[in-house]
């Protein structure tokens, strides 16, 4: 469904992502994890049309989309839940939710809205309130609902758990699991690597703009493997474990 083929993205003279290749198949949940500054958000921004890669190809359903404006990509079935939620704080909750429905026939728009309000009942009672007054968790629900109202075939999420209390993080991942079960294709970018890898069918780990590890949940689910990919070497972890063991023995 989505293919990133050797993309390199930079800002000025800095290269943020280098020669990254990644695939998301239809119905899959894929996570892209890595430490702060690894290039995750940059990658997602390029897929969503906010950045143009220096080189390489981005194909969505077989069509080259690199450099297409975000508003056109949304109509092609690609929706992004941006980092930090980015809800429109001064608009009401209802106005936030109706933005993606512009141009949709009235009856169809009402059905789509009702469906998302069923999913997020906390929003239903607050349609006329300014979105800025919602709690952090509700704002994240609003951001996800707003993206789902774009009727995406591929949902991109950038750090949806960022800044949320642990219970709310659980709720976000619960929602993502439901979406995955409904067959929504998901590409998730997360700093909370353990949760993201547990959730996704497959994961990619990037560090300093380069792919360092990829595989299924089972293949890279071991914390040691994941930690090693963050630190840049598996031997570092093995050495650390060895030291721990010796200290434990003495």
């Amino acid at each position: 469904m989505l293919e990133l083929d050797g993309i390199t993205i930079g800002y000025g003279k800095t290269t943020a992502v280098e020669n990254l290749t990644l695939r998301v198949e239809q119905g899959e949940a894929v996570s892209l994890v890595g430490p702060n500054g690894a290039g995750k958000t940059t990658t997602l921004s390029a897929v969503a049309g906010l950045l143009r890669p220096r080189s390489g190809a981005i194909r969505f359903e077989g069509r080259e989309i690199a450099g297409e404006p975000p508003e056109r990509l949304v109509r092609s079935g690609l929706a992004l839940v941006p980092e930090g939620r980015q809800i429109f704080a001064t608009l009401t909750v209802g106005e936030n939710l109706r933005l993606p429905l512009a141009g949709t026939p009235k009856a169809e728009a009402a059905t789509a809205l009702a469906r998302q309000l069923d999913r997020f009942p906390a929003l239903a009672g607050r349609l006329d309130d300014p979105a800025g007054g919602l709690s952090g968790g509700q704002q994240q629900q609003l951001a996800i609902a707003r993206a789902l109202l774009c009727s995406p075939r591929l949902l991109l999420l950038d750090e949806p758990s960022l800044g949320l209390a642990p219970l709310l993080v659980d709720a976000v991942f619960q929602t993502l699991a439901e979406l995955r079960d409904e067959g929504v294709t998901v590409l998730l970018v997360e700093q909370n690597a353990v949760r993201a890898v547990e959730f996704a069918d497959r994961s990619y780990v990037i560090n300093a703009g380069r792919l360092v590890l990829s595989g299924s949940r089972e293949e890279i689910g071991h914390r040691e493997t994941l930690a090693a990919s963050y630190l840049g070497s598996t031997t570092a972890i093995a050495d650390a474990a060895e030291v721990d063991r010796k200290e434990g023995d003495s």
Binding site: A48, L50, P69, P70, E71, V74, R75, A79, L80, P82, Q86, F88, A89, T90, L91, E95, N96, R98, L99, P100, A102, R146, A147, C150
Partner: peptide, 24 residues
Amino acid sequence: TTVGVQMRAAAENFTTARLVGVKA
């Protein structure tokens, strides 16, 4: 109006408005 609400959204955050389909 729909365009009016889109303008308010764009004025608050132009990039995010484009991400929900508002034509810049």
